[in-house]
């Protein structure tokens, strides 16, 4: 598999949210606006790339039996670093993402890539894979956040699109599920079209 394919697979074909259905908790929980979605996506990308690098570097030093606990420690460390750095330099975003920052550690996407990809490939591929998957995740979260923000508040990235309050339900919890449902369906259709060609 070429590096380009390795990079782009995360956007449509193997999109972590729309196809693999991984990391749905943050995908639903923080996407009340496109900005929050993007922020969460980039934070996860940072953790994903960093832990992929470390895991691919130490993969030969770790005995198979303690592989998973070691990976958990590596991931949890990067999550805590993200947590501290965000609180220091982006307090507003830190406050709106709240509980979901420490919960990056149990995002199945991060553990999944460390275990399934980084532990079997060289560092360079692991970096590309981390960026591809992370940006695919960010793409999905920004899409969902944008959809909910446009329909629910009539805004995008805080820019007002039309007057009035919009359909409030899309900002609230049910809108997250319904919005994601339709985006997954849309991705299914796009993916099928691409494959048929």
């Amino acid at each position: 598999m070429g590096q380009l394919q390795n990079f782009t697979k995360g956007f449509v074909k193997d999109n972590p949210v729309f196809v693999l259905l991984l990391g749905l908790c943050p995908a639903l929980g923080v996407t009340t606006s496109a900005f929050n979605g993007l922020g969460m996506g980039l934070a996860t990308t940072f953790v994903l790339v960093s832990s992929n690098i470390v895991v691919s570097l130490i993969k030969n030093l770790i005995p198979a039996k303690v592989r998973i606990p070691s990976y958990i420690v590596v991931i949890a460390s990067f999550v805590t670093i993200t947590d501290l750095v965000m609180e220091a330099y982006m307090p507003a975003l830190f406050e709106s993402l709240g509980l979901f920052i420490p919960l990056i550690v149990v995002n199945c996407l991060v553990m999944g890539r460390a275990e399934a990809f980084a532990s079997k490939n060289n560092t360079w591929s692991a970096i590309v894979d981390g960026f591809g998957m992370g940006l695919g995740f960010s793409f999905a979260l920004t899409m969902l956040g944008g959809l909910r923000e446009i329909l629910g508040a009539g805004e995008i990235f805080g820019w007002s699109l039309f007057a009035g309050d919009g359909m409030l339900v899309f900002v609230l919890a049910p809108g997250a599920f319904i919005g994601l449902g339709y985006l997954v369906a849309l991705n299914n259709i796009v993916k099928e079209r691409l494959e048929r060609r």
């Binding site: 339900v169 997250a176 449902g181």
Partner: peptide, 19 residues
């Protein structure tokens, strides 16, 4: 296109609405 996960998600949304 809605089969499987999408339909389940929409149902979850309606359940959330009820809650």
């Amino acid at each position: 296109g809605m089969r499987g996960a999408p339909a389940a998600l929409v149902v979850a949304g309606i359940l959330a609405l009820a809650f």
